[in-house]
Every structure is written in C-alpha cells, then in structure tokens.
Design a protein around this nucleic acid. Structure first.
Lengths: 339, 339
DNA sequence: TTGAAAGCGCTAACAA
DNA sequence: TTGTTAGCGCTTTCAA
C-alpha cells in the first residue's frame, strides 16, 4: 500500500540507490533525475519507512522518558509541563518521545534495562533525581546517553540542568523571617530525592544563619501530594504550639496545607503563612494565591532535551552542567506574623 | 557490541534460523538445542533488536497519543491521569507509547499525517474529541486503527469510550435545584469540543425540565483553564443579579471560580455554590472541597488503550462503543441557597 | 552520474 | 529437527 523506494525506482526506470540519493539530496545525481524522482515520490505520496531507516542507521531517533509515579492518580502539573517542554524540543529536532510511567523501584529499573538493551531509544531523559539513583547508575554502566533534571550525590559527571533549590529555600525563609516569623515548620520531601535534601538544607541553614532554632518536631516528611500536605499541616496545626509559617517543599503540599489551615477556620497569609515551591499554574489561582519559588519547568524540559539531542549528534555542549537561579514569587499566602 | 542472533548461532554452531526459533519458543527445536541456545543467549546478554524485528514484522508495537495543548503551561491533571492509564495498559501488552504535544490546528494534523505515513506507530489514541474532528477524519481516511476517548458529531462508527456527560450534568443541576438554587450560571467549554456540547445540553435541558429559565447571559465560555474560570466567575459575580450557583464544565475552571468567589469575600458553598466535572485529585483537597462529577479517567485510559491493542491484534472486541455512567460526588462547595 | 552488491538483524516459507 | 533462501525497506560502499 505505502510507496517504497523500489516502486519509485521502477517508475522512473532508475535504481533504488539513485532514488535514495536523489531524495536524500546528494549532489551526485543529475538534476533531471532528481526532479523526476521528486515528482514521482510526490505523486505516490512517498514517505520513508522509518523503521527500515532506523535499522540501517542504527539509531532510533527516539528519546525515552520514564515518569516516576507513586499512584495511578498521577497529577502533578510539574510533570505535565516538563513533558511538554521535552516533547516540543524533541519534535523540533525530529525526535520521537517514548513515555512510560513506572513507580520507582524494580519495575522502573527493569524498564530502563529493557529500553537500553533492546536499543529501542537513543537516549534518556531522567527526571527527579535521587541521592543514589539506580537509573543513573544503570545508564552510566551501559554507557548510554542521557541528561537529567537534577543532580545526584557524588559524581555529577553527566549532563544535567538543575535549579538551585538551596537558594530557593533561602529566599523563602528570609522572606518569612523578615515578616517576623520565628516558628517555621517544614514539609519535607522523601529523603531519597535529591532536591529534598537541597531544600531541607536551605531551610535549616538559613534558619541557623538567622540565629533561629531548628525544631525537628516541626519538620515533617510527605510524599509531595496534596493529600499529604493536608494531613501533615493538620498535625502541625493541632500542636499546642503551632508554627506561624509552614514552608512546603512543593506547591502541591502547600496547597494541601492551605486547605488544612482553612478547615480550622484560620486565615492563610494572616494566621498562618504558607509557601510552596515550583510555581505550578494552580499556585497563582489558589485562594489566597500562593507565595512560592518559581521554576521554569517547561524551559528546563526543553533545555534537558536539547542537551541530550546535541550530545547524541556529537555536537558541542557549551554548558553540560547548568544550575539555574530560582526566583521568589511573593503572593498572598504569606504575611506578617500576628502577635 | 550488543549480541545478535548471528553471534549466538556461531557459538552454538547452528543456523540463525534455529536460534531464532529456539528463542521464540517454537516446538520444532530439540530440547538440547533450545537449552544450549538459551544458555548462550543468557551469557551474551542477548536482547533482540526491536527495530529489526519491527521491520520484519511490519508492525511497530507502538501506539501514538498526541496531546492537545493550548499553552506551554500545560497542567490539566486530566491528561496526566489519562496518560498513565494508557501507558500502563500499553506496557502490560508490550507496547511502547509515543507521546507528543501539539496545539490543535495545522501542526497537530501534520503530526497525525506524518506518524501515519512514516508507519511509525500501529495505532492512535485520540483524546478530547471535537464535533468535526480532523484527527478522526484523517485516521478514517487512512484506514488507520485508533480508539478515542469521546464521541464526535455524526457517525461514531469507531472504537470509543465515553462518559455520559449529559447525565453528569443532569445530576449536578438536579442536586443544585434540590438545594433551592434557581439562578444557575454555566461555565462552558469551547464549543468545538464534543463534551462541551453534551454538558451544555445536560445543563440547559435539565433546567428546562425543571421549569427553570435558561438565561443566556449566565452561560459563559472559557478555555477550561483555572485562569479562565477565575475571570468568568468574576464577570458573573460582578453582575447586579449574580447567580447563586456556578456550574463549571470542568474542575479546573471550577477551582478558578472558587478563588474568584473567595476574593470577593464570599463563602463558597454558602453564598455561592460551585460545581465541577472530572473529579481530579485537587478537587478533593480544595477548600472547600469541590462537588463534582466523577470520571474514572485512569480507567478510561486503560480501556481505550486495551481496545485499540485488541483491534490491531485481530481480537474480538466485545463492546466497541462504551458509554459510562458518571456519578455525582457531593462535597462542600455546594450548599443550600441563601435567601 | 549511476547501479550492483552488501548488509542492518530479524522472521518465515520451504526444503531437506 | 534443522538449514537454505528470501526478504522487510533502507543506506552505503565500491566499481563502472
């Protein structure tokens, strides 16, 4: 049904080779032949068989991204935006994007190994790095190209784009301290996530730098979901000595914390200040709007993808390790402490 | 570097064919040979070259899904969940999922045509159908397998799973009417979307059935984003005769509407009732929690994907057209009308 | 400027 | 039970 080089070759009375070269734009084909070939290809609606080309070229022109999900109710806007960034950059370069969702663990590692070994893709995009990241170890061991959003503990001798989370948290904490807050709580992320560590570090060190105590009882760890944010904030608020500000590791938990505050009849930004991290679209439209740290996730997705495409094409990578400085977005969920 | 059948064949001193068959589990291979082949394959870490297999079998074992996005800030949890459902069903059957994001229009249609003509994928998943859906027309014209989430206007002679949006809206409106609301506003979706029509129909017809007027001024159309929900609700609330209830076409707009109400110092679920549609995770954790219509999006994703895989494998499809009945989830954003 | 030949790695029809 | 042959559709030497 679909036209092949062979068919074109028969029609124009030339060899398959010539047709191939004519279409590929090689210079050693006569103008007449080329024109004729193009003409017939057009008529037949010829489109190269990608699979055949891939086999021959030994590259798949496909990038893989395995999204780590903890539950089927998978809804962090963070990932959608990242995916859009990656996808658009890939499309612009003619690459396909193979997406799969796996919860971290054995299945996920298996997915990586399978994709690598079956040579189904040319490179990987790794998102949300972990301290000891099995995915990156697998990729390195296989000497397989990849780029990551985030760093790991230890050698970061690979392509990555990251955001300076430590700085992000410093901005947040300083903002709150300036507003008079002294008892700050922290909704931390699972400690195996690299950004969790940076954000926690930024939190505690900034407090210390300001001469404020770090109360371990005010540091609670959640799974980044709105649900956990809600629960954990509830625990904090029901203490005899609740914090006056809750700093969440990401917007989703912050949003959950907001509703916990509101459920108790308290006013966010007045009785309790809340901050997030990521600046996902809902942060802006929450009520009150959420003070948070802006991460250009879409752009980071594009950058990461572009990097890895460049590397598999042997192009020069000007900056193989990029750390972006985040910015604080002050909205209404943070306000002066009440006495 | 990577092992091939040829290498295994050399080691065991058999032909490539035999090795291929041994590994594929054909019965016409001696046990001894099979064991030996398996052994060597294991040692060499053999993994079939998917591309070669695909070329030979003339199928890619890949499904495509092109997500329609209107802006780079692409964050509807609806799509993430759907994607997870599709992806997991695909993985379970050994299919890859090729994802791309395009805004509706020329680029999107081009993406479909290119994917079809280059035989890059075996089938498509179409999401968020439109009245006159160019994507479906292209697919039909090319006689290419696909399954859709949603129906179109006209012949629905293809595989689809849909949700009875009309019923969903009936449930919502009846719930509100029962609470005493008489002035209901509607935040509609772009009219080219099929579900927009069903939901609008459900809204107006239920009002009429209840003998209530349908005021065109209370029907505003948005782009499904939280931002638009916020803006449109603002317009409604600033009228001299604001509605007592706002029925939104989807949760995102409902969430945006909630914050507009709250910004005006009004209480959602008391001064103004608000309802959504989809039951995305944030709906549950909003403050107040959102009354909405539950759609099992993850499950629908799985079903749609399974359908299309079945069809390309020539399996029997028991129900090629499925319409699911939605359920109303009553939460706190809807309450009795105040007099 | 063109074409023959070879091969990417795999599967399948057929014969032995 | 096994091997030979052929071919999927394309690209790429190499020779003419």
């Amino acid at each position: 049904m679909a036209a092949t080089l062979k068919e074109i070759a028969q029609r124009v009375g030339k060899s398959v080779t010539t047709v191939s070269r004519a279409l590929a734009g090689y210079s050693d084909v006569s103008e007449a032949t080329r024109a004729q070939v193009r003409q017939v290809a057009q008529e037949l609606g010829y489109e190269p068989n990608i699979t055949a080309r891939r086999l021959q070229k030994r590259r798949t022109e496909t990038l893989a991204i395995v999204l780590p999900t903890y539950s089927p109710r998978f809804s962090d806007p963070f990932f959608s935006e990242f995916l859009a960034g990656v996808g658009n950059a890939a499309a612009a370069e003619g690459y396909d994007l193979l997406v799969s969702t796996r919860s971290p663990g054995d299945e996920e590692e298996k997915a990586y190994r399978d994709l690598i070994r079956s040579r189904r893709v040319d490179a990987f995009i790794v998102v949300r790095t972990r301290l000891h990241d099995a995915r990156i170890e697998i990729l390195k061991a296989a000497n397989f190209p990849f780029a990551a959003f985030g760093r790991i503990e230890g050698d970061n001798d690979f392509l990555f784009v990251d955001e300076d989370s430590e700085l992000g948290l410093r901005l947040v904490v300083e903002h709150l301290v300036k507003l008079g807050h002294r008892r700050l709580a922290f909704l931390a992320a699972p400690p195996d996530l690299m950004f969790a560590r940076y954000r926690l570090k930024g939190f505690t060190e900034t407090l210390q730098a300001r001469g404020l105590p770090v109360d371990p009882e005010l540091i609670l760890t959640g799974d980044l979901s709105q649900r956990h944010g809600h629960q954990l904030a509830g625990i904090l608020l029901d203490r005899p000595d609740p914090p006056t500000a809750i700093v969440a590791c990401n917007d989703l938990m912050a949003l959950g914390a907001m509703s916990a505050v509101q459920n108790r009849g308290l006013k966010v930004g007045y009785d309790v200040s809340i901050t997030g991290f990521d600046d996902i679209p809902p942060a802006e439209h929450a009520h009150p709007s959420l003070t948070t740290v802006h991460q250009p996730v879409y752009k980071i997705g594009k950058m990461v993808c572009q990097m890895v495409i460049d590397v598999i094409n042997g192009r020069e990578i000007p900056n193989p390790q990029i750390t972006l400085a985040p910015s604080l977005v002050i909205r209404q969920s943070s306000g002066p402490v009440q006495i």
